[in-house]
């Protein structure tokens, strides 16, 4: 007899492709109705364009450069967000300084940040800086929230027993913070892709997915525009999945570290 967990896993495995097929079908219907690949190319045309683009060097270089920019931007925002999130929960003065900045960054449009940053940095650095500024708020907020919900009684217990701060961090803070950081990171990866590609588009950075999207638009190559967009979506989802797996593995290792 199948357990309910196995059944629900199977249902999810069947459901996801069905949902994707449903949306591809709606897209195909729309493309048939419009019947102009200049306005709305069909899924098949888009996949064909993607397959044509993939072997080209410009595709590989653009994808690689954009991915490096996103990893750098998200990575920097992780380091700064976690460090300042922990510091803000420990020192009120730091919180008072960071909180309005985070509020400002959360509400400012991506386009405004990108244009401003482009005035100050060159086209290679600007997308990384934009990505950093937009990814920082969710990571900072989540870390700060995690720090404030940690069980103070357990900290008190560890302090009475004179446990070293590194062990308190490893055994009380980190296991509690990891889901908060994971959720912050997962939001940031999506934001990172959107902001970096937008900044690349505005900065006309060399070898950049954003620039390729812009070129497709000005040369009215709508099928290519769809193919590049599809690449962004697939890579963004893939990166989120990989990072989630890595962090979950790492958190499990932190949790199980004491067994050895």
């Amino acid at each position: 007899m199948m357990s309910s967990t196995t059944q629900s896993n199977m249902a999810r495995r069947i459901k996801t492709p069905l949902v994707i097929l449903f949306y591809l079908f709606i897209w195909e219907l729309g493309a048939l109705k419009v019947s102009s690949s200049l306005i709305l190319p069909s899924p098949v045309e888009t996949i064909e364009a993607l397959l044509e683009l993939m072997p080209k060097e410009v595709f590989r270089l653009s994808v690689a450069t954009t991915v490096v920019r996103i990893v750098s931007g998200v990575g920097l925002s992780m380091v700064a967000g976690i460090f300042l999130g922990i510091a803000s929960s420990m020192k009120k003065q730091i919180f008072y300084i960071i909180e309005p900045l985070v509020g400002f960054l959360k509400s400012i449009p991506v386009i405004s940040v990108s244009i401003l940053i482009l005035l100050w940095f060159d086209e290679n650095i600007a997308p990384v800086a934009v990505c950093f500024l937009l990814c920082f708020p969710p990571i900072w907020s989540n870390t700060f929230q995690g720090m404030n919900t940690v069980d103070k009684k357990k900290i008190e217990m560890a302090r009475v027993y004179q446990v070293e701060w590194i062990d308190i961090l490893k055994n009380i803070y980190l296991p509690h913070l990891s889901p908060y950081m994971l959720s912050g990171l997962s939001i940031s990866i999506g934001l990172g892709w959107k902001s970096t590609v937008t900044a690349e588009l505005l900065s006309s950075a060399p070898y950049a997915m954003g620039r390729m999207i812009y070129n497709s638009k000005i040369y009215l190559e709508t099928t290519d525009l769809f193919a590049w967009t599809m690449t962004v979506v697939i890579l963004s989802m893939l990166m989120e999945k990989i990072v989630k797996c890595l962090i979950e593995k790492k958190s499990r290792r932190i949790r199980d570290g004491h067994k050895n």
Binding site: K154, M157, A158, Y161, D167, N171, I172, H258, K259
Partner: peptide, 21 residues
């Protein structure tokens, strides 16, 4: 200190909870 509540760390076993201190 034995508190009113055990204040054990959930991801550690009984043995590891003692080892922690």
């Amino acid at each position: 200190y034995v508190f009113q509540e055990p204040r054990l760390l959930d991801h550690l076993t009984a043995y590891e909870n003692i080892k922690f201190v």
